[in-house]
Each structure stands twice: as C-alpha cells, then as structure tokens.
Design a protein around this nucleic acid. Structure first.
Lengths: 334, 334
DNA sequence: ATGAAAGCGCTAACAA
DNA sequence: TTGTTAGCGCTTTCAT
C-alpha cells in the first residue's frame, strides 16, 4: 500500500503515463497493456496518492462544508445529504463548524482555500457583505444552503419561508383560530426566523388579525419554554406558531405545564419537521422542510458548477408542506 | 491569494527556504528578515498551499472520521467534539458515513489512506476481524470511539455499558420495581446494546428477578413503539429499560397510548441522555453518556498518538451517570 | 542565519 | 497507443 505509480509502471513494464491513463481512464490504452497494469496494481496493492494527484491536477475532489453547528437541530441530516451526493460524484467533504460567527466563517473560507477544496457549501444564520467579499476573494465555487442572500448574487438553495409562514396562518385561520402567537427570538434572530416572522405578520394583517409576539431571548428550547410560560399570564392566544420545531415543542410543553389542552385550548405548529415532532404527545403539526434534500440539492448544484454544466437559475427554491399532526387536529380521536 | 512561496521569496529578497522557515517557525530567522517576509506575505495576500505542503511533508493535518450516520441520534454531537479538538490542534476532518456496513467501512479506510490523512477516528456498530486487518494494512493511527474492540488491540474510548445497565437495575430495584423489562433489538443489535443487555441480565439474576425481554425488530423508535405496544397484552412489567433514549421514548409513548401512567404504573429509563429526554412529558430518566466528550477525548487521544506523546493505556473508559427525571420519580409533584 | 537543490507522487502536454 | 519530460508548490537536507 506504499508503492508509487512508478513502481507499478516498472512492474507492468510500461511508463508511468500509461499507468496514469488506465487509472484515470483519460485515454485509450490497449486492452492487453491495461490488463498488465491492473495486475501490477493488484500485486503491489497500489493506491494512488490523492495529495500528489491534487497538486498535479489542481483538483482535490474535496469540498468544504461550513455549518454553524452540526450538532444543532437537523443540521446533521443536511450534512448527510451533502455527503451522500458528494460521494456519488466522488468527492469528500471537510466539515467545519463556525458557530455562526462571522469572523470564524471568513477565516474558514480562507483555510478551505489553503486546503485547495474544489468548492464550498456554506451555511450561516445571516449573510453579511463581509461574507460576499471573502467569497469573491477566494475565487471558489460556492453554494449557499438554507442561507439567504438578499441580493441573490450567490448560488443558493432554500425554501420560501415567508410563504410557508403565510400558509400556516391560513391553515390555522381555516380552523377558526384568530389569536395566533408567534414564538421567536426578537432582535438577534436568524435570517430564516425573520422571514418567517415577516410572512406571519403579512398573513395576520391580511386576515385582519392582530399579530401577537412571544419574544424569546434565544432560538432554543429553554428560552422558548420560559417565554411561553411568562406569556401565559396574558392568556389570549388560541394558537401558537414556533419559529422552529424545538421552540414549538417548548410551547407545547409550556401548555402541558400550565394545564392547557392541546389542541383544544391551544393549537401549536412548528417548522422543519424534525424527528422531534413525532416524539411528543400530542404529535406536532409542522412545516416540512426537506432537510436532507437541502444538502443533497446544494451539493448536486455545486457539482454542476464544478463541471460547467448549465444551470438555469442561481436560486433553487425547494417545496415546503404542512404536515398535520395531533397538535392541531380538530377532532381528536382519543 | 494565488501567489506562491516563490513569489513571496522574491518580493522579500530572500530564498524560498527562508520563507518556509518563517511560515513554519522551523528554524531561527533574523528578526529583520522575518519582518520583510511577513510584509511580503501580507502584500501578496499569500496563503500556503496545504496540498503541496502535504505532499512535501507527508503530513496533511487532516484526519478521517468514519461514522455510521452523522444524522443518527447524537452522533453529530460526537462529531462536533472531534472537530473542536481537531481544530484546537490545527487539524481538519474529512467526514464519511458508512451506514455501519462492513464493506463500506473497509473501503473508506482505504480512501482515507489515499487522501493521506494523518489518522482516523472510527465508529462502528460492531467490530469484526476484517476491520482489524484493514487497520493494520493501512498503517495509520486509529482510535475507536464508542466502538468496542473485544480484544483491546486498538486504542479505544468508551463507557462501561455493562456496569451502566447494572446501575439502572439497582436503581429501579431500590424503588421497589422487580418486573423490569429490557427493550432492545434481538439478534442484530449493536455491540453496545449487547453489552447493556448483558449487564441487565447479570443484575436481574443478582437480584433474583426474572429478566423480561421486549424484543424489537430494529433499534429505532417505530420498532420499539410497535414492540412495546404488542408486549402490553401481557402486562406484567412495572418498569422498562430502553436500549437507548429513542427506544425508551417509544416505550414512554406506548404507555401513554395504552393509558398507563408513568411513573406510577410504569417507570421508564433510557440510555444516552440525548436532548430527547427533556423534550418528553414526563421527562425521561436516563444514563448520561458524555456524547461530546466521546469525540473530544478520542481526538485528543489521537493527537497524542500523532505526536508520539506517551499514553498510559489504550482503553479510555469515560464515566457514566444516571440522570433522574420524572419518568421514575416516586413522588410526582403535579 | 541563509541559500541551493533535490525530491514528494502525480498529471498533462508534447513527442514519437 | 505509448513514452518523455516538465512542472504542481512546498519541505528538507546539505552547504555555506
């Protein structure tokens, strides 16, 4: 396993160029010669050194994946989607966590350049102009994933979060609910939450309902639990929309703790269709985002960029869908 | 950003060897020369090419991480632990999913060799002799993580799953429970589940209780839900121990669906202390495994191997701990 | 303290 | 169809 291409060439009685040719199928090699080369490769347990290959060819078959935190929510599913498609196209991924910090994200792009990755899939809670500058400097194919570029300069795969939030309000309105609260972090929320909130506000206005904000300190379970518990002093909602599933589950549990019945007294809806939604009682109605597909589609998109395949648009919008579960069913069976 | 070390050398009026020296701090360079080099680097926005560096030095500062599935359970936390420590020591990780399939795992080790990684962190549901052979062939430093090598030949970080299961049985016994069921996949279970089951059986025998097995088809939520529902026809348990949290939550919900009260009628305990445990009602008592630490410690261990630092033992056992929540509290407050 | 030069293992013209 | 030969951008002896 430590033989070089030169050893193989000698063993097979050919030049290293020929070995390279059969290895990469980059030119026609006589059937018999090819056979000899293959035998030599097997005999020596030869494996090509990808680093040398990368240096010579200037392509490493490696792509950089920059995420805020793999261990958060369903990021791992997304990464899995990336990795599956990457491998399909014979790429490997270098995974980095940025914690959503701008400076780290920027440094990481530089490091990825040093590693000579062929491209980058980039996720961030909110895209700044510094990011764009860095991308341009790096001169690398980049696809944004679940990260909105308001000015649509960078290739990007996303869902329509505004429309999704509108859909939920319509859905709850159709069930007779009018006092729908939005549970989300105020101020320092992610771009995605902002969009959902915008859609929510627009829809509430369209229906003539007054928006109700249950503001949380952060975008996590405990902050949401606390916020909803506090809010219950007011008791004027008949439905809650969480900025994501984790926060919606917190809302669900705050209701449980307060003795409120879901869905009778309060309907609850989340976002993202994480595994969580099926692991609560009642189960959580949610807006399904194709987590795995996010990654898979983004990576597929990147391969197109890398192969100079034509792409019709730089912004891919994935479909979303409301998945109804028992946290909103009007007629409870049990 | 596309200048080479040679450009920097010329700009600074020194040889490339000197640039390399200041870059790597590998020999003493006169303060003034160093300054000139640093200025040239800044002026040209020079960044070293890690691939060329890897080829020349035979060290890539990259380690391969082979996991069954990042998106499963808490694997992502573990990977995060690896990545954090890796970066601390200036390494990057190439992440690969094997789906726990032996052939894929073996192929992956080969590919990691091709990529010239400096070491591998390896996770698998069950270690076979084929794995060991591959490891030896690859001649790479390897650390097993949450993966038992029964013969203790490969460095490994783990917890004592047998003891953990014993502890749970003791814990439930102290609460007066005697008909404790074990919810786990039979036959094709992971090595970890096997160990937990062994510990469970041993403890049950020690107490003079009869072991009760609720066998599931697979190690997941739905299989466990189905199995526990079926088992309830018999109705002879007063406590259930899930092979992991996901299965324990399924047991919890099967109880809910059957109208059984937890913890009064049935206590439920899980394994792993995933986020899930706090997102159920009642909240789930569980055995905490340090997910993040698994990865962090394994990576730290690997750095020791890579730097030839002395290691006292090849098997690191991490501590476990029962976290009591409301699924087993005798006096329920509400 | 610095420079010259030989690789590292491969790809990719260019020849033949 | 196959071989020769430059590199790719860096590290690392070995001199000086």
């Amino acid at each position: 396993m430590t033989a070089t291409i030169y050893d193989v060439a000698r063993e097979a009685g050919v030049s290293m160029a020929t070995v390279s040719r059969v290895l990469n199928d980059t030119a026609v090699v006589k059937e018999e010669t090819k056979k000899r080369v293959l035998e030599a490769i097997a005999k020596l347990s030869y494996r090509p050194n990808a680093v040398a290959r990368g240096l010579a060819s200037k392509r490493t078959k490696t792509i950089g994946v920059i995420v805020p935190d793999v261990s958060a929510g369903f990021m791992a599913e997304l990464v899995r989607g990336i990795e599956d498609v990457a491998r399909m196209y014979n790429y490997h991924i270098i995974l980095c966590n940025s914690d959503g910090m701008v400076q780290k994200e920027i440094d990481l792009v530089g490091t990825m350049w040093e590693k000579q990755v062929d491209g980058i899939i980039f996720m961030s809670p909110r895209l700044r102009s510094e990011h764009i500058d860095t991308f341009e400097e790096a001169q690398l194919p980049i696809v944004l994933c679940r990260t909105d570029d308001p000015e649509r300069r960078i290739p990007c795969v996303n869902i329509d979060n505004r429309q999704a939030a509108r859909d939920v309000v319509d859905f709850l309105s159709a069930k007779g609910r009018t006092a729908i609260g939005f549970v989300g972090a105020a101020g320092n929320e992610s771009a995605i939450t902002s969009e959902r909130k915008e859609g929510y506000i627009a829809a509430m206005n369209d229906h003539g309902y007054e928006p109700i904000f249950i503001d949380t300190a952060k975008e996590d379970y405990n902050s949401a639990l606390l916020a909803v518990r506090t809010h219950f002093a007011i008791e004027r909602c008949d439905a809650l929309l969480g900025a994501n599933d984790e926060m919606a589950v917190a809302a669900l549990h705050a209701c449980y703790d307060a003795g409120l019945k879901v869905p009778q007294d309060m309907m609850v809806v989340g976002f993202d269709n994480t595994k969580l939604t099926q692991m609560t009682r009642p189960e959580l109605t949610t807006v399904a985002q194709p987590m795995y597909d996010y990654g898979a589609v983004a990576m597929r998109f990147l391969t197109k960029l890398l192969r100079d395949e034509p792409v019709s648009t730089y912004t891919v919008i994935l479909p979303h869908q409301i998945i109804e579960r028992t946290s909103t069913t009007t007629h409870v069976k049990r």
